[in-house]
Design a binder for these strands. Sequence first.
DNA 1: TAGATTGTTAATCGATTAACAATC
DNA 2: TAGATTGTTAATCGATTAACAATC
Lengths: 205, 205
Amino acid sequence: MNKKISDKIIKRLTLYHCILVDYISKGLETVSSPVIASLLHIDESQVRRDITILNKSGKKGVGYNVIELKKSIEIKLGFSKDKPAFIVGAGNLGFALAKYSNFENYGLKVLALFDNDENKIGKKVNNKEIYNICKIKELSTKMNVEIAILTVPRDFAQGVTNELIKANFKYIWNFTPVILEVPENVFVLNENLMGNFLKFTMNKK
Amino acid sequence: MNKKISDKIIKRLTLYHCILVDYISKGLETVSSPVIASLLHIDESQVRRDITILNKSGKKGVGYNVIELKKSIEIKLGFSKDKPAFIVGAGNLGFALAKYSNFENYGLKVLALFDNDENKIGKKVNNKEIYNICKIKELSTKMNVEIAILTVPRDFAQGVTNELIKANFKYIWNFTPVILEVPENVFVLNENLMGNFLKFTMNKK
DNA sequence: TAGATTGTTAATCGATTAACAATC
DNA sequence: TAGATTGTTAATCGATTAACAATC
């Protein structure tokens, strides 16, 4: 089987992918590791090393074909694998993410939203219906969804998470500033926007 | 001067901080490294090691005082240092971030939004006015803002970035899926939500 | 005291970088 | 051919983990 790819490599590969999308839209045919490295302010041998895990080769003296390299990244990272998900919490952030069409390029498909606010239930955002949160187990089972994008207010975070666990969700992408308690077979990704931000303003000067 | 703190440590410290906020609200007085470690599914000696950089000590056999530890993290990471910022792009994500009150707990203060849509200009979101993008240099100078939160559509990303550079912004928190070209003295943080997400669903199973 | 937990050192592990032969 | 860039190895660097004496 495939070796695990480290988180850092995955993150960098998605950034290379952004560059490739841009180069393709500009009609360019190749790109070299020094160019990618300088755009991202990283080391050029790191770029080459990352690319080796794609089992795809470039041309010495020339660089990489942008279309092939883009496709290799998409295959390796499973962009074409459907990842159906529900957004839980139809507030501002939930709405914003529901409308964020870029997710679909990566295979993440938001099928519906959930909330407990009667005024929102039944309405649609970007063609996705907002359901009563109490329906979530029924619908996740029927629609075979095991990814939840959690955007509820902090005080509801753990309570709603408990419902998600009962509904057999396996992945919780946690946009709340709460550390969730979950059983071993459920994975939580703490998005922790401010943590990302602080590491940015703290170290640079 | 203070040694640089690695990005990973900063990120973990913010997660410890979330736990501490929770413990304090529950009226608990101490927390130990094994407890923090198990909540975050990390190694307990890593927690202790991270905490040493705060120059703050726990009690052997007991743990850490939650209030003191929380304060130490806030001091170390500069939560009380004001970080005035503008949101550039008053779309869904821009609106959501403008309403995300949690930022203020970390010292990030969104002072205004900017857009080029005449229908939005002059309106307010969460008490923050939306200005015409052409005013950004004037206002960033007057209000002494050097952080931009970039939430424009992809096709505008580089063009708007060029304006931000002219307006002397130093930090660009980039929520677009575009790799921005900037001079050396401008720092870009690629938020790259999907990159974060993929490293989550790829490796776990 | 006995049990628990810290603080810290040493060992391990993994990621980054430097360097360069191969070759387009 | 000359210049550029890849692919890869070895060296370096930094982060994580294991272990345990000190001590509350």
